[in-house]
Design a protein around this nucleic acid. Structure first.
Lengths: 357, 357
DNA sequence: ATCCTACGGGACGGAAAATGTCCCTTTCGT
DNA sequence: ACGAAAGGGACATTTTCCGTCCCGTAGGAT
């Protein structure tokens, strides 16, 4: 298969490609377990019985599967077709396996790996955003408070979130004050956009993240802050990007001294105003206003979105630092992560499926 | 592009491939006419403005098209992507062009060409059936009487018709009595199945098509027939297959004498109990009960479904014989048809678009 | 032999998405 | 200055999707 064309197809019609991949997976699973019951299959695929049923009915109409009293199986035709789809199957299985291995390696229950490398193709970030917004829609509950950080990847999540009628009461808040100059990638902007898409409200935090110690303390007494901060810190869902330590430090206009310090302490990642080394230990903390690490620990769901192999080390670091429930990343980062040294003294834990949608 | 895999993909997820092709077409059109208005584009694509709008909104979200005050255009990204999709574009354009040429050649307003050759791959018949059922759904109106003939292709149309809630009052009738032994491909069976799918009723005709002259005349006086025949002959929509003259004669257990006669008169096609030569002239007519040629002429829409290059000559013959509004065929037949000699003394006529769905 | 479980499949109501329809403001070209 | 045509918002309606409950049955275990 000429992957150039295929990659282009994925960009033109990602939902269709995903639907196709799903269908192939269903067929794979049927082939492996045939004959298998509809309900068992649905559970294995992590979807409702009814939706699977629709799919099966269609496949049946195409003459690719047949149902008997003991369950559904592939027809000879379906089997032959699955063989012809080998290259595609390999690709899907490969990415699924990748997700599984990253999940084990980082001890993150749910890992989603999209195709490509964000460092090489900027549009990969969009696909991470799509996958991220799907996950977010999936986990959202009524009354949730979503905290979002800044960054291009989180911005992509908000961008690709489909507008929903306001059925749930959702509040979106920025995890922290403002970092960087590009407004579109600031937490405030993203929170506002996401709230609009979800039909919820947003509580913004119009302060700079790089204030003097003194100014910060003054702010903490301010009614404006005192009113908003508690809401932010009660976030139930956290969607955050992961930054490379030095890159983030420079973006924040850190002093040369600070940068030297971070280098000396081998800081690898930045998140929520904290710098972490490879082992996930906090090596430097900025005194800022916003979501703290212990707030993150209290959140119901913590979603990390980050792609590109340059982010691999940073992702691994934060995975050691605090609980991450869902990681949405790309192939570039995933492969690089697996090349990193295994963190010593940490045993593997159970993990769930990497999840289809 | 490795067409082996692509063909397999088409069989596993034909609707998705079609949707994809449509999207690419939209992009092509935008690229060619940019900037173009939404309404103009919708009209050119033969779909409603609102549905196109949904598509455009999605394409916009993917960053492939951009809207300005003067209309929508492809973004540089979209342009680049369209370039990468070149093989696919060529394929689509090729088939579209094929349909256009067949449409001109046979003077059939609407021609749909699906991929493949029914003589080589039996599943191509299914795809013709799908396309046919789409067309049928498209043209159906309340109160319609659909007459169907027998044959595998028409059976495929009924098979792939999606079940509809009974919103329209539809009657389905067999065009003729019973031909051949395989029940599944008999007009009666097909009519019954189609009626069930459409939530309509069927009026069947339980008589053999190959009766003696005398028996036929007796039947014509029978109340059973007198009640049903007028309904059949009032059909407003006709869906019929096209048969090769000799093949059909043999299937009907024609005598050696008859076959020799057909050969002598250069019969090429059979339809509605009539045999036609290449010029579309009736060279032999069976005296049977059912839909007649002048009934076909009165129908609102006449749809012919037939594939495989062996049917090429037969299709061309019947196209000369009576009015066909829609032809659904495959590449194999289409290419072969264009190699046939142009019927002399017939000028080209205007034709519509080959139609997307 | 008989229970018992899991199978496919029918039916139906409510939720969600798609779509037809109408209107508005803006932006061009004339 | 004006009008045609652009994109986009809003909303009712249609259509599709999906959760849920149920049924008859086949096949394995008891």
């Amino acid at each position: 298969m000429e992957w150039t064309v295929w990659a282009a197809v994925e960009r033109v019609a990602p939902e269709l490609v995903r639907a196709m991949e799903h269908r192939v997976r269903v067929m794979q699973r049927i082939d492996a377990h045939a004959p298998i019951g509809r309900r068992a299959l649905a559970q294995a695929m992590g979807q409702s019985e009814r939706t699977l049923r629709t799919e099966l009915e269609y496949l049946k109409q195409l003459g690719l599967v047949a149902a008997s009293s003991s369950g559904v199986s592939l027809t000879p035709e379906g089997k032959a077709l699955l063989g012809e789809l080998e290259p595609l199957v390999a690709e899907i299985a490969g990415r699924s396996d990748l997700a599984w291995r990253v999940s084990s390696f980082l001890r993150i229950p749910r890992v989603i790996v999209v195709e490509g490398d964000a460092d090489e193709d900027t549009w990969v970030t969009d696909r991470i955003g799509q996958a991220g917004s799907d996950v977010l829609s999936d986990v959202l509950q009524d009354g949730d408070i979503i905290a979002v950080t800044g960054g291009t990847t989180v911005a992509a999540v908000a961008k690709s979130m489909s507008a929903k009628p306001l059925r749930q009461r959702i509040t979106v808040v920025p995890a922290r004050g403002t970092v960087g100059e590009i407004v579109a990638y600031q937490a405030n902007t993203i929170a506002s956009e996401l709230a609009a898409k979800l039909g919820g409200s947003s509580v913004l935090l119009q302060i700079s993240d790089s204030l003097s110690q003194k100014a910060l303390e003054q702010l903490l007494d301010d009614p404006y802050i005192q009113e908003r901060l508690p809401i932010i810190r009660q976030a139930t869902v956290v969607v955050h990007g992961v930054g490379d330590a030095l890159a983030m430090a420079r973006r924040r206009h850190a002093t040369e001294e600070e940068i030297r310090l971070l280098q000396a302490r081998e800081a690898k990642a930045e998140a929520f105003g904290h710098y972490f080394n490879a082992q996930g230990e906090v090596v430097y903390a900025m005194r800022t206003i916003g979501l703290r690490l212990d707030d993150v620990a209290r959140a119901r769901v913590v979603i990390a979105v980050a792609g590109g192999q340059r982010k691999a080390q940073a992702i691994a670091s934060v995975a050691n630092a605090y609980r991450i429930d869902v990681l949405v990343t790309d192939e570039g980062a995933a492969r690089r992560i697996l090349q990193l040294e295994t963190p010593a003294g940490k045993e593997r834990v159970e993990h769930g499926s990497e999840g289809w949608h």
